[in-house]
Nucleic acid binder design. Sequence first.
DNA 1: TGTTTCTATTAAAACGTTTAACTGACGGTT
DNA 2: AACCGTCAGTTAAACGTTTTAATAGAAACA
Lengths: 341, 341
Amino acid sequence: MTPTIKDVAQKAKVSIATVSLVIHNNEKISYETRMRVNKAIKDLNYHPFRSARGLASRKTGNLAFIVTEDHFLRSEPFYTHIFLGAEFEARQNEYYILLTIIRSDFKQGDRLPRCIVERNVDGIIFAGKVPQDIISCLEKYELPMAFVDYYPPAENYPVVLIDNFSGGMQAVQHLSALGHRHIAFVAGDIQHPSIRDRFQGYKVALENAGLSYSSKMSIIDEAYPARENGYSAAKRLLRDNKNVTAIFSCNDAMAIGVMQFLKESGLRVPEDVSLIGFDDVDAGLSLDPPLSTIGVPKLELGGEVMRLMADMLNNKVKSPKKVLVPVELIKRKSTAEVKIS
Amino acid sequence: MTPTIKDVAQKAKVSIATVSLVIHNNEKISYETRMRVNKAIKDLNYHPFRSARGLASRKTGNLAFIVTEDHFLRSEPFYTHIFLGAEFEARQNEYYILLTIIRSDFKQGDRLPRCIVERNVDGIIFAGKVPQDIISCLEKYELPMAFVDYYPPAENYPVVLIDNFSGGMQAVQHLSALGHRHIAFVAGDIQHPSIRDRFQGYKVALENAGLSYSSKMSIIDEAYPARENGYSAAKRLLRDNKNVTAIFSCNDAMAIGVMQFLKESGLRVPEDVSLIGFDDVDAGLSLDPPLSTIGVPKLELGGEVMRLMADMLNNKVKSPKKVLVPVELIKRKSTAEVKIS
DNA sequence: TGTTTCTATTAAAACGTTTAACTGACGGTT
DNA sequence: AACCGTCAGTTAAACGTTTTAATAGAAACA
């Protein structure tokens, strides 16, 4: 049988309470006993039994990472990276993360994630846009909560967000610096806060560059920002705007669809049309030409939210922090100087 | 406070043992009491406390999913998909999966994953090639083990493997059916069982097609099968073999590098050289031209290994099953009829 | 020397389940 | 009428920790 705290106590000739105190670095234990106990722990290769700990202390050492299935599957590489970033950081903090995928149409009364109702987590991380109903339902459990890449309206929790506004500006600045004066914007689900901010950045940068914003140059009513919708958005855009020389796509997934349509229409990238995305997903690199984009440090996002969570769990709370993670322009081959015509 | 089994017992006017028996569907409980208890459970919105269960029953409801960091990060989309497949199936079986990333140079004596030493899992799934040392170390914990996409030599555990041999054959059959007679093979780490099997399939299919195998046409000594090594492998291959008209790459990652080199050398795909990969990763789709490949049902692989694990945990063990998951040829645009020269 | 204060350690209760052994009631067999 | 089995449920111990309150012993003080 694997050894228990009792075995350690016996071997070190102390009570089990002392062993427990040593494990928790209680400073009241004398140096000698501490050493004796530590030696016994090592000799026996003792490790406390997680379940027993959980029962006694009500701490499980687990965290829930909640994301909707369409976010996770549709834009998978993106949220997967955030998950991994959190997972790596969690390891440093001695936590395990329970990946919990929910439906994006969650409604009050639906069954809640099992790990939460069974009180098998110490806190909850929400990644991406998540239905308000589940947030309300979970608030009752009084667990620490943190958000990444989404922030519910009118709540007060720690949050890690991408600097989408700045990213949108950088993309447009890059294009206008290349001499483009007819810069279009392509997006889906403009309700989404991230995309709205990118759009804002687009508009402000346009203005800064002395270019006028025209709603005809913005396709913002596609269902969601995925490849196929990029294709159809580009189709609509170019039907009505023959003079477009540059397109800023709200993310790489749509940009891939845009590029596909451009090629099929006989337009060369970047010679005829410059194209820039947002997110820097792997696939952009294998495109021909490789996609210029706004790089988002996804692992970093996950790590940062995990750190915020750890702070809460260690009661270093202060007031809930908001972190804005910077993004960077990545110039590849899909953007170039405008053609003089 | 959240209700406990005691509250339920009180409300239903039975002992806590009866409540527990009802929860576990013990057939000794009469219909009437069962109903009464179930009503109380529902009314109170009672859920058993996972940690307490774990302590009493020694079942945690968790599983470890072990993968090396380089597998997971390098060929990330691949093992991530397997992980997700397992995760989805785990949900059906009421398990949570603890993702556990280890170093690929794990040696006896290194610190073992925390979730295992703290006995916080009921079983272990190994994904991809994993150091023998960690297998040996973990055997001592007497947990059920299963493997996916790798099988340790001389062991006897349930396992789910890709039908790599058949995949290799299919790739080459496809190319030879298109009239190619100079078909090269490109790989890294030929020690790896999966790659070795693909290589075998290549050789056998060559023979079946009446083509002779030449070691000059196989680059099998790259360090690992990643994009950059595909690039260098293609460079070496084409330096020594001007007559190659088709290349079978051991996976898509390398194929991407191969394609990049071909283009840079002024060779057109598929007009001058046909190219086929293996795995069907997302990036292959966005290539220009889209990559023909051998499709591997990654989610399915994960789901299948999870099912094997569930069978073991429910003591439906029988003898350890081996499952071979079939693959399918996906024809896209990177392969075409050989040019008559 | 006796009293107080302080420190290192311990005893014991508590956490919420599971489960083996037990009980009491009832019906059927001798 | 005594016995036996079966059924439906209960009693109570056990699981391995944490944590609070208690305690013994040493040191400090008068």
